[in-house]
Design a protein around this nucleic acid. Structure first.
Lengths: 150, 150
DNA sequence: GCTAATTCCGACCAACTTACTAGGAATTAC
DNA sequence: GTAATTCCTAGTAAGTTGGTCGGAATTAGC
């Protein structure tokens, strides 16, 4: 029951973009440095995120990535869905693809999976990138303080 | 965010054992047949379940597997944990292993993962095998009706 | 005691996924 | 023109998944 690092890295990268929102595009080099991630790998993840319409890429010198929408309008669930696929513990309760389980009516396990799916979706969709920015508790780190106003 | 078939198969097998609870051990052959699973593969899963103390194996002719506790006392979460490991979306919010994340205090993503973990645990631990038995909605199938009284 | 049924155990395997690295083409600010 | 960047594709080592197979140990019933 783990998400892969794709989702984790993706959220961390999106958090950085959210912190810099409104200040122009952020190059991946910076994001990778701040979050200690492989720049090459991150590049691939951002490609997926871009195709999902969550970020915009600005090419060329002084380019980088920026959020396609405001941090309030992007949920953690959006990012996870883009990188990990639909949020569903088993495929037969996938809200997007639905159907195709021949014994779905008489399946005794369907109920739990549905409840699990719903509670996961509830948590992930009710948390936005803006929430993540607010959430960091005791901010003792003096790294980029003052600038991040997402 | 999927559980593997291990967890799914495991729950289905445990459901069968729950339905037959109190009627002596059920051979894997029967379980595999009823749930349309590979008997060989199921054997491996039952080994894990046995080591986790959830089922008892009875060897020899007329042997099979039976629940180690009553269906009310085994939760879906117990089975998932045995087969898939601790219930946590990312390793740093694993309740069992805990700790070891150097930046855990100032981590902006920790909050979501904790809330996600808690809601998953809540659903999985509050559903018992007995609940699964009750839950099957319109029982039109005349397969083993009358006998299953878990 | 023999036989058939069954758990138990470990080895093997093909396909897939994960988490990368590498290289190069296209685009753009300066 | 040059340096900085995104964009795209290919390769890859290690791990996981979802099995199969063969055989040893145990036991009920004859």
């Amino acid at each position: 029951m783990r998400i892969s690092t794709k989702g984790g890295y993706g959220i961390r990268a999106m958090y950085e973009l959210a912190m810099a929102h409104g200040q122009g595009p952020v190059p991946l080099k910076v994001v990778a440095e701040k979050q200690a991630l492989s720049e090459n790998y991150l590049e691939q993840l951002m490609g997926t995120l871009r195709k999902a319409g969550l970020v915009r890429g600005v090419r060329g010198a002084r380019g980088g990535y920026e959020l396609a929408r405001s941090p309030e309008a992007i949920s953690v669930g959006d990012v996870i869905r883009a990188l990990e696929g639909p949020i569903a513990p088993v495929s037969c309760v996938d809200l997007d693809a639905e159907a195709d389980c021949e014994r779905h009516a008489s399946c005794p396990t369907r109920g739990v999976w549905e409840r699990l799916r719903d509670s996961m979706i509830e948590v992930l969709d009710s948390t936005s990138l803006a929430d993540l920015c607010k959430e960091v508790p005791q901010d003792a780190a003096p790294d980029d303080s003052g600038k991040g106003h997402c």
